[in-house]
């Protein structure tokens, strides 16, 4: 099982957000601005890498009945560390992300990768897979964040994109806009994949 394939597959072919439609809660919730998206990507990447590493180490000794419970405790530990770190050193970002940082614990991607991959493969493969998945998650969130921020408030990472003539399209920042943008992105994503598959 070549490691490079594990690493690359998370970027596009098995992108956790667009292909497997996992981790949708943060994807919709925090992408109203790119800054929040970056904060969330960093947090998820840290937690995913950390927990994949630990889970792949301890996978042999955990009995089946408490498998999910133990993995979740490991993930929750990393999430709490991330949450406390953000609250201490980046108070603005922590306030903006609000309840969504603790909710990384139940983010379907992380538990999904632990159950589907880390609990069945070696340490190096799991960490690479986690890295690949984080990058895939990052790409998806940056895409969502940019589209919603540019359309919704006419800026990108705070910098003005359009002149003052552009009237921001408010719905993009609202929950409804998040659903629309995500739906259309998945549509585009599938169409591109289908086009590639055809050739």
């Amino acid at each position: 099982m070549n490691l490079l394939k594990e690493f690359i597959k998370g970027w596009w072919k098995e992108n956790p957000v667009f292909v497997m439609v996992l981790g949708t809660c943060p994807t919709l919730a925090v992408t109203n601005s790119v800054k929040n998206a970056i904060g969330m990507i960093a947090a998820v990447a840290f937690v995913l890498l950390g927990s994949s590493f630990i889970v792949s180490l301890i996978r042999k000794i955990v009995p089946n009945q408490v498998r999910i419970a133990t993995f979740i405790v490991v993930i929750a530990t990393f999430v709490t560390m991330a949450d406390r770190y953000l609250a201490a050193f980046y108070p603005q970002l922590s306030k903006a992300l609000g309840p969504y940082v603790p909710l990384i614990v139940v983010n379907c991607i992380i538990l999904g990768r632990q159950e589907a991959f880390a609990s069945k493969n070696g340490v190096l493969a799991s960490v690479l897979d986690a890295l690949g998945m984080s990058i895939g998650f990052g790409i998806a969130l940056m895409l969502m964040g940019s589209v919603r921020e540019i359309l919704g408030s006419g800026t990108w990472l705070g910098m003005k994109v359009f002149g003052s003539w552009y009237i921001p399209w408010q719905v993009m920042i609202l929950p409804a806009g998040a659903f629309f943008v995500f739906g259309f992105l998945i549509w585009g994503f599938n169409s591109i994949n289908k086009a590639f598959a055809k050739r």
Partner: peptide, 13 residues
């Protein structure tokens, strides 16, 4: 197993 891991996590946190 569950208790040991929880204690570990409690300590680290």
């Amino acid at each position: 197993v569950l208790t040991v891991f929880s204690i570990l996590s409690g300590g680290i946190l």
